[in-house]
């Protein structure tokens, strides 16, 4: 193509036309902080992991359960240990993925690695969210079945199906709202940090189809 070769000629001609940065400027630059998306992903991921770990391991029902219904305490404890194991596995996976990110890899590889790192955190967040909703539902059902304070409500629910249906509906509604909000939040975070990366990733994958 003539035009592109013409451009090449001009490109080469102007190769040395840039204002040169000095050693001093380079020294200053390498001591400044990066604003790359990898750094932001690390910060967000660590914050998320802390937030969801704290929320996920809150000892909400422990004491109450132990006192009033010791028969439920053992599975609950097992669940807690299981949760700790999941956290450890997650930290290991995240660390492994994070150190794998290297700017010297090919562009495709680099994008793959960043997306994989991000996905690990997402899975962790979804896991915690699911667990929180599960324990919430579990707690509600348990309270409904055992707490003396709500005897009246229980009786009413037993007697007419409508009240029971309303209760179940409210539970589902709550779960749905929490789910929607989390989804929106992630769209936002993804939008800010990964929009460019994902569109370039798509572009790159299109070439290799």
């Amino acid at each position: 193509m003539d035009e592109l070769d013409l451009l090449k000629k001009d490109w080469k001609r102007n190769e040395n036309s840039f204002n040169q940065v000095t050693d001093k400027e380079i020294y200053a630059m390498i001591h400044k902080k990066s604003s790359s998306i990898v750094k932001w992903i690390l910060i967000i991921s660590v914050l998320e992991a802390i937030l969801w770990t704290v929320l996920g391991t809150l000892p909400v029902a422990d004491d109450y359960l132990e006192k009033s219904h010791p028969e439920y305490a053992l599975p609950f404890e097992c669940f807690t240990y299981f949760n700790y194991a999941v956290i450890l596995v997650f930290i290991y996976l995240f660390y492994r993925n994070y150190v794998r990110i290297s700017t010297t890899a090919s562009t495709r590889q680099l994008m793959d690695d960043i997306i994989r790192t991000r996905k690990t955190v997402n899975y962790y967040v979804w896991y915690n969210l699911a667990m929180i909703m599960l324990s919430f539902v579990f707690g509600l059902v348990l309270a409904f079945l055992t707490k003396p304070e709500i005897d009246q409500l229980r009786q009413k629910a037993n007697e007419d199906g409508a009240t029971l249906a309303v209760l179940i509906f409210l539970m589902i509604l709550f779960v749905a709202i929490v789910g929607c909000l989390s989804w929106l939040f992630y769209r936002l975070v993804y939008g800010i940090f990964l929009r460019k990366l994902l569109s370039n990733y798509k572009e790159l994958k299109k070439i290799d189809l």
Binding site: I37, T103, A105, F193, K196, L197, N200
Partner: peptide, 10 residues
């Protein structure tokens, strides 16, 4: 440099 421009630069 290319990787930074395409992938890392926000």
């Amino acid at each position: 440099a290319l990787n930074t421009a395409i992938t890392l630069y926000r």
